[in-house]
Design a protein around this nucleic acid. Structure first.
Length: 258
DNA sequence: ATGGTAGAGTGTCTA
């Protein structure tokens, strides 16, 4: 079984790339973030023709998360208990969708960006993560996969030059502590053992040819509960997908299970 | 400190 997560930065503008990605890697499950579409705007026909079912949460032009699965899609849940919204009804800003796919409980997560340290959105981000953690503790006993854009670089090696991030979000002690809390609870980062440092970057800003110079960040993660982590045989970042024109600013992250 | 690019949708907002 092969899972992947990708911040697609608009599903409609990159539907061809999504379909090629599913084919190219023979994916069973794909979690998407920043779909930037209402549910009624989703380009479903090709995906359904390829055998994928879709779980979705997204009603505004900025966020939006999806799970595509060809190994079943059961018990779909939008958001998690205690999901805090941001100036909108909870369903608008859930930033999380969960489903059971082939026996694995999958969550597609789009952690709030935070914008700037001291911005109200930064505190919303910390609160959102704390509430997710509370909910996720109950899922540790199953085969659970928390994957998506965490908007946190947990280690200095996860950014191209830590000295450039002195006043930035994504690397602050409070964000890092919020991420570490999941690991302390028992979730396992199943990608880092396979690829890390500059080879493990998953995001490169569109500005200043950041990708061409590999000045990126690692902010997309797959965290697995212990029993699921034990099934992981390989993981990688599909850097090819970030190359060329018309790419998302994130690369897909892939995980193989036995 | 600012600006650079990209996607939503036509005002800017978000990242």
């Amino acid at each position: 079984m092969r899972l992947a997560t990708w911040n697609v930065n608009s599903l409609r503008s990159r539907i061809d790339r999504v379909e090629r990605l599913l084919e190219r890697h023979d994916l069973d499950v794909l979690a998407l973030q920043e779909t930037k579409a209402r549910e009624d705007q989703l380009p479903l026909m090709g995906l359904q023709a390829m055998g994928y079912e879709v779980a979705y949460s997204g009603t505004n032009q900025w966020n939006g998360v999806a799970i595509l699965s060809r190994v079943g899609l059961e018990d779909v849940e939008v958001g998690f208990p205690g999901t805090p919204g941001w100036g909108e009804p909870v369903e608008t800003e859930s930033r999380a969708v969960g489903a059971t796919c082939g026996g694995v409980r999958v969550w597609s997560l789009y952690v709030p960006n935070g914008r700037k340290v001291d911005d109200p959105h930064y505190f919303y981000k910390l609160d959102w993560l704390a509430r997710l953690r509370e909910a996720a503790r109950d899922w540790l006993g199953g085969q659970t996969c928390l994957m998506g854009d965490w908007n946190i670089a947990p280690q200095d090696e996860d950014v191209f030059d830590i000295t450039r991030f002195a006043t930035s979000t994504h690397v602050t002690p409070r964000e890092r502590a919020a991420f570490q809390a999941f690991l302390d609870d028992g979730y396992v980062d199943v990608v880092r053992p396979h690829v890390s440092g500059p080879d493990g970057f998953t995001y490169w800003d569109y500005y200043r040819q950041r990708f061409e110079r590999n000045r990126g960040m690692t902010i997309d993660f797959v965290l697995a509960s212990p029993t699921l982590a034990a099934r992981v045989t390989h993981a990688s970042v599909d850097r090819e997908e970030r190359a060329g024109t018309g790419a998302s600013d994130h690369a897909p992250v892939l995980v193989d299970l036995d």
